[in-house]
Design a protein around this nucleic acid. Structure first.
Lengths: 209, 209
DNA sequence: CAAATTTTTGACCGGTTGGACAAACGTTAG
DNA sequence: CTAACGTTTGTCCAACCGGTCAAAAATTTG
């Protein structure tokens, strides 16, 4: 990175944001290697050397984007809380996750791209921060199961399946729209998905009578 | 493509297979633009011009790979049949899909890469062949619902969720292994996933008493 | 064996890419 | 006004990349 964080002027902050926004667009649709600095510069409305004045290397942009992304990306899971009704908690976790797929598909795709290619730049984060958080929440879910509040299953795979099903609507969006066709593939598809996922997970997780 | 298919010698077939195998490895981990002909050639143990003797352009390799992939990829869904017990049919569909994620993760990632980047090369196939097949199978599932054999839901989103959850174990494999850790992330993870998915989908789809 | 054919390779080319650099431009403060 | 500082740009470069080509090497055919 270029200018040390504390000494950034308002203009510098602004331009850096502009670049990051443009880079998100470009990286998320072309992957890291598939994106060029020129593309990002053009999307940000500036020349390549100008962009390189704010971020010395292409990788710096990607790294900054990635760091920032991970926090927001894990926020919904962080909010999953022990207090409150378990099924309600899970329901709103699923809803929040699906809303993120709807409202931040580029972020989802950026993340998917990185994982698909073996997570070369964020492996430590997965084994550290992410694993810790998931283990913690899995313990919470396990507690609910022991208390008979929800059916017994593997909490880790439950979390994976929530990730998979919700992010699918961002990462595989073109496929979803192609299969649903013009009529059902419109804006309503997220509400249909929400209804379906609620039924699948919540009804499926109700404790066995 | 180079030599017309009917006039290929045994050696040509063999070399082409070698190249396709190497290309699958490289494309699935780096994406199309992220992969170079040199990488593929090295992985196939030959020089770049030699590779280009068998496939004139980089795109031809990708196209051949993609065409071949789609058939095998959709085979499990094609097998989903109206005859036989609905829950058993769905259970074995899910199992076959998960087995494909386990045994052909590179194929899954190649496909995921393509879709993630907007499916520029296979869009017609998605809107045509794939949509037709899914619509057909959705009708079958709907029939089961009308007959009271399984609970009522959206058949399209049901299929999406099966795709998402099973392919997740191939596409996001590094993340799954990182989160499960060294002990649970070993070879047993697919059996755990199979048990979990069976419970989620099959128990969740039993008709409401 | 020799001629014909197929396969392999080294050298090369034009275009692209990430990045460096110095000069020009703009802005602010004394 | 002008010196200092921050910003922008045109130009350039070395590395890389997809692809060509002619000639060498290997193989097949007669």
């Amino acid at each position: 990175m270029d200018i040390p964080a504390p000494r950034r002027t308002r203009i510098q902050q602004q331009k850096r944001e502009l670049i990051l926004e443009a880079a998100l667009e470009v990286f998320s649709t072309n992957g890291f290697r598939g994106s060029t600095i020129d593309q990002i510069a053009e999307a940000a409305g500036m020349s390549k050397p100008n962009l390189l004045y704010y971020f010395r290397r292409k990788e710096d942009i990607h790294e900054t984007l990635m760091k920032r992304l991970l926090d927001t990306w894990l926020a919904p899971l962080r909010e999953l809380d022990d207090i409150g009704d378990p099924l309600t908690e899970l329901r709103s976790y699923i809803r929040r996750k699906l809303e993120m797929a709807r409202d931040f598909p580029r972020e989802s795709r950026l993340f998917a791209n990185e994982i698909l290619q073996g997570a070369p730049r964020i492996m430590p984060m997965l084994e550290g921060e992410l694993k810790t958080l998931v283990d913690e929440k899995a313990a919470v879910i396990k507690g609910w199961m022991r208390a008979g509040k929800i059916a017994r299953t593997d909490p880790w795979h439950l979390i994976f399946s929530i990730w998979a099903t919700t992010q699918h609507y961002a990462d595989f969006d073109v496929q979803v729209r192609a299969v649903l066709g013009p009529d059902r593939g419109g804006d309503g598809r997220f509400e249909d998905a929400a209804r379906f996922l609620e039924q699948l997970f919540i009804d499926g997780l109700k404790p066995k009578g």
